[in-house]
């Protein structure tokens, strides 16, 4: 009974929920601070989106719970850190061109390295446990331990300071609203990735096959498509996005540390569950919800910031057990 009421009014409830989430905080937060927090939330949401979209598509298409995704995220951050260290003069140069160049070099290097790592992971480990969630959790968890230990071996066990390229630092002050430059960059990156993914998924034949596979793997195989090649490709893309997320997050939090993947993986799973498994748009919306509420609540009730997203997740699961944007709808 209660469930059917939820379902019938799920759109209205979602709308009311959105109003509560995004407008109500205005009662307790001064408008300019609210806008700053909103930007921070959007930036954090975009970074979570980069991690969550990979988790979501990999689960949607391959039915694989990849707990190693967090360590791929950390690897992306560390590879980026190495590139930054090697090209430190470009990082510290007061030149937008050089700053952008070092960021792009770090981004491409991190994404390619981690994509290769992802391919290795899929071929050697994940492929053996298709169809068995328990084994997937255990084995990808094992892979995480190995990957994190390798970080300690290669880069050492300590936190390292990540230096933001000079022209990305600081903020603009627009009508008393503090707008951090790097956060704007994060938002732009997130939007570009989202647009790119949508374009590939909706407009290319390969993307269409991936979406079909998210709905029905067996059918896609029986239609003559090599699903394993598709799995490897999607795993590589997911890994590359995790790497980008890791790099961008390390510049956001100004540090890298071996265990950094774990924290964000938890957020990513919450995002994916809120958004609906297998949906890129779901990941984006879920990530923005998580990013924004985290920032509002951290300002209003700091001790509740971590828990509130789990609460939202539970509420959304009650209203729509399949998440906000389930694949195939």
């Amino acid at each position: 009974m209660a469930e059917s009421v939820f379902r019938r009014f799920s759109q209205q409830i979602t709308l009311i929920g959105a109003v509560v989430l995004f407008v109500l905080p205005l009662l307790g937060i001064p408008p300019t601070t609210y806008l700053t927090l909103t930007l921070a939330g959007l930036a954090m949401g975009m970074l979570l989106f980069l991690v969550a979209s990979g988790v979501s598509i990999i689960f949607g298409l391959m039915d694989v719970l990849n707990f190693a995704h967090g360590s791929l995220f950390a690897w992306g951050a560390y590879v980026g850190f190495t590139v930054f260290s090697l090209l430190m003069p470009w990082v510290e140069a007061d030149s937008l061109a050089l700053n952008l160049a070092v960021f792009l070099v770090a981004m491409v290097t991190a994404m390619i390295t981690v994509a290769l790592l992802g391919i290795l992971l899929e071929r050697v480990i994940v492929r053996r446990v298709y169809g068995n969630h328990l084994f997937q959790i255990l084995i990808t968890f094992g892979a995480t331990i190995v990957l994190v230990e390798l970080i300690r071996v290669f880069w050492g066990p300590n936190d390292e300071v990540m230096r933001v390229p000079l022209t990305f630092r600081g903020n603009w002050d627009i009508l008393d609203v503090i707008v951090y430059r790097y956060r704007v960059i994060c938002i732009i990156i997130g939007l570009l990735v989202y647009g790119g993914l949508l374009l590939i998924l909706k407009k290319t034949k390969l993307g269409t096959i991936v979406r079909a596979g998210v709905e029905d793997r067996d059918m896609v195989q029986a239609m003559g498509h090599n699903i394993y090649l598709l799995f490897t490709g999607v795993f590589a893309v997911g890994a590359a996005l995790a790497a980008l997320g890791g790099l961008a997050m390390s510049l956001f939090s100004l540090q890298v540390y071996p265990d950094m993947g774990g924290t964000y993986l938890l957020f990513a799973f919450i995002v994916v569950i809120i958004g609906g498994l297998g949906s890129v748009t779901g990941s984006l919306v879920g990530a923005l919800i998580v990013g924004l509420t985290y920032n509002y609540v951290a300002y209003l009730v700091p001790w509740a910031a971590a828990g509130v997203n789990i609460l939202i997740m539970i509420i959304i699961l009650l209203i729509r057990p399949t998440g906000l944007f389930p694949a195939g709808e």
Partner: peptide
Amino acid sequence: KPYEIAREGIGFIPEHMGIFAGL
């Protein structure tokens, strides 16, 4: 593998039709 068999020229129309509803 199923995709190899399909490419040999066997078409499959399953019991539950296997339509991609979201496409």
